[in-house]
Amino acid sequence: MYEERPARLAGAFVWRRDTGTAGAAGPGTRPVLPDGCMDLIWADGRLLVAGPDTTAYVPRDPAAHYAGVRFAPGEAPGVLGVEASALRDRRVDLAELWGARTARGLADRVSGAPDRAAALEELVLRRAAEAPAPDPLLRAVVARLRAGRPVGATADELGIGARQLHRRSLAAFGYGPKTLARILRLRRALDLVTSGVPAAEAAARAGCTDQAHLAREMRSLTGLTVGGYVAGPRSA
């Protein structure tokens, strides 16, 4: 079972997932697709940080119970104190970032809470209140790329050079703006397809040149097919 809700932190979501039993991933495990985001995750008593993905992720040894906060693209580095590129395609114990004693204490606090997802959200809110304010330029980059604006036009409109945009994107998103744009475009298309829009129409509305372009992007960024993903389990 998977459920999520908007968090009290701007642009973030709080989620929880119960698989019933811990152990090797089974055939019903739904892959996590790239979305430009990072997560702070409680998993059976451990606190983990999920870095930005560049391909589909399937846990090899999933926990039975999860709670998580998924940050908006570019927001996690300021809260967690680590550049996104350092965690690209990685899941790391929070102890690597905040120290074993601090991470263990926080994990125990979340584990003992009646609502672990809410406790994790409170942890993030306290940390965010002490962190530097989010960079409005990076938020503007995400908004423009999410709306389908080209990377070059986005840089020009925001008055930032291509090299600087790439450097700041690596730190905030974990990859360059072109990769982020591709990921956001793919997510737009998949949201449309899963809501019942035919794939060819979804591809056009999302900004792909045609359905074949969407299929290539899906394969390149996830290793999956659009049809296979849509027909898969809905547990996550």
Rank of each mutant, 00 (worst) to 15 (best):
residue 121 E to W: 06
residue 103 A to Y: 11
residue 89 D to W: 00
residue 227 G to S: 04
residue 114 P to L: 01
residue 225 T to A: 05
residue 103 A to M: 12
residue 144 R to C: 03
residue 84 A to R: 08
residue 161 G to C: 04
residue 113 A to G: 06
residue 81 G to D: 08
residue 201 E to R: 10
residue 81 G to L: 09
residue 190 L to V: 07
residue 69 V to W: 09
residue 167 R to L: 13
residue 180 L to N: 11
residue 227 G to Y: 02
residue 72 A to P: 03
residue 63 A to W: 03
residue 87 L to S: 08
residue 46 R to P: 00
residue 55 T to L: 11
residue 141 V to R: 05
residue 138 L to R: 06
residue 75 E to H: 15
residue 175 Y to G: 10
residue 148 G to M: 04
residue 153 A to S: 07
residue 215 A to T: 14
residue 223 G to W: 06
residue 71 F to S: 01
residue 188 R to D: 10
residue 188 R to K: 13
residue 4 E to G: 08
residue 19 T to P: 00
residue 110 V to L: 03
residue 3 E to N: 13
residue 34 P to D: 11
residue 79 V to A: 02
residue 118 A to Y: 01
residue 134 P to M: 06
residue 46 R to F: 10
residue 71 F to E: 01
residue 39 D to G: 05
residue 30 R to V: 14
residue 236 A to K: 11
residue 2 Y to E: 10
residue 49 V to F: 07
residue 177 P to M: 04
residue 67 A to L: 08
residue 184 L to W: 05
residue 176 G to K: 01
residue 4 E to H: 13
residue 178 K to Y: 11
residue 213 H to Q: 09
residue 22 A to V: 09
residue 64 A to H: 09
residue 51 G to Q: 04
residue 187 R to A: 03
residue 86 A to Q: 12
residue 224 L to F: 06
residue 61 D to N: 15
residue 200 A to R: 15
residue 221 L to D: 04
residue 4 E to D: 14
residue 114 P to G: 03
residue 174 G to T: 06
residue 192 L to S: 08
residue 230 V to I: 11
residue 3 E to F: 09
residue 198 P to Y: 10
